[in-house]
Design a protein around this nucleic acid. Structure first.
Length: 274
DNA sequence: ACGAGCGCCTGTCGGC
DNA sequence: TGCCGACAGGCGCTCG
C-alpha cells in the first residue's frame, strides 16, 4: 500500500491536525490497547502499553516508508506495510473494527493504527538506528546526486524492478511508483542495473523524483478502500493499465510478473536492450 | 549476489 | 445468489 508519498502525506496530515483531529505534537498518550498482538514487534505487548502510556508526542518524522513518532522518552516506529493507516477519531466513538492498536490521547481523541491485513508493525525503542540505518538513501534528498546513484547502480547485476523495490538500495519506492518511474525513464523493468549509462541513470533518478513529487502534490494514490482522497491514481501511465493504450505511443500496456510482483510497462517506449 | 517460493492476512472483484 | 480463484500499495525468511 503506502509508499513514500502516502506515508509522507499521512505524516503531514497528522502533524498539522488535518486527519480528523488536532495536531499530534503536544498531545500526551493517556492509555493504549493492543488488539492484535503481533502488530507490536518490540517490546512485548504488555510492556509496550506500560511504557508508551504517559509519554508526550513531540514531533513526527519519516524515513523511507517508516513513520517515526518522537515521544518524550522513546521513539515509536510505525510501518504500514500493505494496508496500514492511522486514524484520529473522538474517544466517544467506538473504535473501527480494523484497528489493531489504539492510543488514547489527552485531547479526547484516539489514534488508531488501522490495518485490515495485519501486516503492519510497531516498534517502541530508545534508538531506531538499527532499523533506519539499514535503509538506502532518501530519493528526494538533494544531497543524493546522480553520481551517487550511478555509483550504487554500477556494481549491481540485478534487474531494475526488484532493485528499486529493495529498501536497502533506495528507500521509499513501492510497486506503483517504481513502474511509473521506469516508464517515464523509458527503461525496461528487466534491464540489468550495471548496463545503464550515466545518462540513463540520470533519467531514472529524475523520473523517480518526478513521480514521487507528483504523488506528494496529489496527496498520494488511493486505488481501493485504503487512502481515499489521494489523486495520483488519476495520473497513472502504466500501473493497473494492462491492455490499455500507452498515453505516449498507443501500444497496449503489458503486465508481467517480476520477483512475484505485478509489473506494468509499455513494450515500445521501454524496449529491452543489451 | 541474486532469484524463486512461501508465509503472513483480509477484502474485493470477476467469472461461472 | 453463492462459490472460487486471482489479486492487492510490503517484506522477512529459507533454499538453491
Amino acid at each position: 500500500m503506502p509508499e513514500l508519498p502516502e506515508v509522507e502525506t499521512i505524516r503531514r496530515l497528522l502533524a498539522e491536525g488535518r486527519r480528523g483531529g488536532p495536531p499530534l505534537p503536544g498531545q500526551r498518550i493517556t492509555g493504549a490497547q493492543v488488539l492484535w498482538e503481533r502488530t507490536v514487534a518490540e517490546p512485548d505487548a504488555a510492556l509496550f502499553v506500560a511504557r508508551v502510556t504517559g509519554q508526550e508526542i513531540l514531533s513526527l518524522g519519516r524515513r523511507g516508508k517508516y513513520l517515526r513518532l518522537n515521544l518524550s522518552r522513546d521513539v515509536l516506529l510505525i510501518h504500514l506495510r500493505m494496508s496500514g493507516d492511522l486514524w484520529l477519531e473522538p474517544l466517544e466513538e467506538p473504535p473501527h473494527r480494523h484497528h489493531r492498536v489504539i492510543f488514547d490521547l489527552s485531547s479526547g481523541y484516539r489514534l488508531g493504527f488501522n490495518n485490515a491485513r495485519k501486516f503492519g508493525r510497531l516498534w517502541l525503542v530508545e534508538d531506531p538506528a538499527p532499523w533506519l540505518d539499514k535503509l538506502g538513501p532518501e530519493p528526494l534528498d538533494e544531497a543524493f546526486t546522480v553520481t551517487d546513484f550511478y555509483a550504487r547502480l554500477h556494481p549491481r547485476r540485478r534487474r531494475l524492478k526488484p532493485l528499486l523495490l529493495d529498501q536497502t538500495f533506495l528507500a521509499g519506492l513501492g510497486n506503483i511508483y517504481t513502474d511509473e518511474a521506469l516508464h517515464r525513464a523509458h527503461l525496461h523493468p528487466l534491464r540489468i542495473a550495471n548496463t545503464l549509462t550515466v545518462q540513463e541513470a540520470a533519467a531514472l533518478l529524475d523520473s523517480i523524483r518526478f513521480v514521487l513529487r507528483e504523488g506528494l502534490r496529489q496527496n498520494g494514490a488511493s486505488i481501493d478502500w485504503v487512502y481515499r482522497g489521494g489523486g495520483f491514481q488519476n495520473t497513472f501511465q502504466v500501473y493497473q493499465r494492462t491492455g490499455q493504450p500507452c498515453h505516449t505511443c498507443g501500444t497496449p500496456i503489458r503486465r508481467i510478473i517480476v520477483g512475484q510482483r505485478s509489473t506494468h510497462f509499455c513494450p515500445r517506449c521501454q524496449p529491452l536492450r543489451e
